[in-house]
């Protein structure tokens, strides 16, 4: 498929101890496996992003398992307590094994 395009929103800087909000979005059909092809009547095979993982400076601090009930172009927002500067890395794992990634730097202090 066309490559899934991730978009993430992380504040550029934060005060130490501040709780920041992080927003993520990725373009993906999230084919549920329950729709039928209108022409052939056959079920369209499931193809979704089933896992979303976020690390900060290499350490995983947030993740989610997604079922087909997650809407197309999956969005997720969550929070992090800012304690040190570093890099946040986002990984989305597709049913077919593909991984889509994004990175953002955060400056603390």
């Amino acid at each position: 498929m066309a490559s899934a395009k991730p978009r993430v929103k992380v504040p550029k800087s934060a005060a130490s101890g501040e709780i920041i909000e992080i927003k993520s979005l990725i373009s993906h059909k999230m084919e549920s496996g329950q729709r039928k092809d209108k022409k052939t009547g056959e079920l369209i095979p499931r193809k979704i992003i089933n896992k979303f993982i976020v690390t900060f400076n290499g350490k995983e601090f947030f993740s989610a398992d997604w079922a087909p009930a997650i809407a197309a172009n999956p969005y997720m927002s969550f929070h992090m307590r800012a304690t040190e500067s570093g890099t946040m890395e986002f990984t989305w794992v597709d049913d077919d094994g593909s991984k889509y990634t994004a990175k953002k730097d955060l400056k603390v202090g």
Partner: peptide, 15 residues
């Protein structure tokens, strides 16, 4: 949705 203490708050949203 899997949280850790580093999240600061156990709060998330999706569609």
């Amino acid at each position: 949705i899997h949280f850790t203490p580093a999240n600061g708050v156990a709060k998330a949203s999706t569609r």
